[in-house]
């Protein structure tokens, strides 16, 4: 093996790379919150909505789940571009991730709703609570506990998927790495360091998530 590993250029660019990592976190977290908002709407539309809303919800969900994430990004990039709508690379990633998250989370929420025993709703109504009170106070907290773990996984998924920013010109962690790597031809070294950074980010997210769960869900399993 006559290859010399050159790590120094990588460490010199580290500040820029780490700053790009914050962009990764920012777009991923934002896409999750938006994904949750749309996901809940889609779930409700699919379960209870009028015909056209149900149809729209099902289309969105099935498209998000049956096509590659990169394809969905292409749609927001090239597809809408055909109609003259051009988004910045950041927006393409944000829209693509949100679209994908919403589709998967909708199914998660639907499952969560169905998992709360209908008897909980009955008990709440029998005490005189209005439907809104019953849903907000009794059903939703329990749904939240059920979907918490899948939601965390979806966040991790979003972080990993954001790496596709590299392919649409968004300078998040991967994009920034690609930029430096192609300048210096130290592709392996740069991407190896980035791989470690992603690993740390994912572990961090999972750790924080577990901590929050431990504090918030002390009412545990019956």
């Amino acid at each position: 093996m006559d290859y010399n590993f050159h790590w120094r250029p990588v460490f010199r660019s580290l500040p820029d790379i780490l700053e790009a990592a914050t962009k990764t976190l920012e777009v991923s977290i934002l896409s999750i919150f938006l994904g949750i908002a749309f996901g809940v709407l889609l779930a409700v539309a699919k379960m209870n909505g009028p015909r056209p809303a149900r149809w729209l919800a099902i289309s969105w969900i099935e498209l998000a789940r049956n096509t590659p994430a990169l394809f969905q990004l292409f749609f927001f990039g090239f597809g809408l571009g055909a109609f003259g709508i051009h988004f910045s690379p950041y927006m393409i990633i944000l829209l693509g991730l949100t679209f994908n998250n919403a589709g998967y989370l909708a199914e998660t929420f639907k499952g969560g709703f169905n998992a709360v025993p209908p008897t909980q709703l009955r008990a709440a109504r029998s005490l005189g609570m209005t439907p809104v009170q019953a849903y907000v106070r009794i059903v939703m907290p329990q749904v939240f506990k059920i979907v918490y773990h899948p939601m965390t996984n979806q966040l991790v998924w979003a972080v990993l998927m954001s790496s596709l920013g590299m392919l649409v010109g968004f300078r998040e962690l991967s994009g920034e790495t690609q930029f430096f790597a192609s300048k210096t031809f130290r592709i392996f070294e740069y991407f190896a360091v980035t791989a470690v950074i992603y690993y740390v980010i994912v572990k961090f997210i999972l750790g924080v998530s577990r901590l929050i769960a431990w504090r918030a869900f002390r009412w545990g399993d019956t």
Binding site: Q120, A123, A124, S126, L127, G128, T130, I138, Q142, W219
Partner: peptide
Amino acid sequence: INKLRQRLGMVFQQWNSFPHL
């Protein structure tokens, strides 16, 4: 009906206590 239910207390076979409270 919500007002009326306040006069009727019900206890179920599967108690249905609210687990998060």
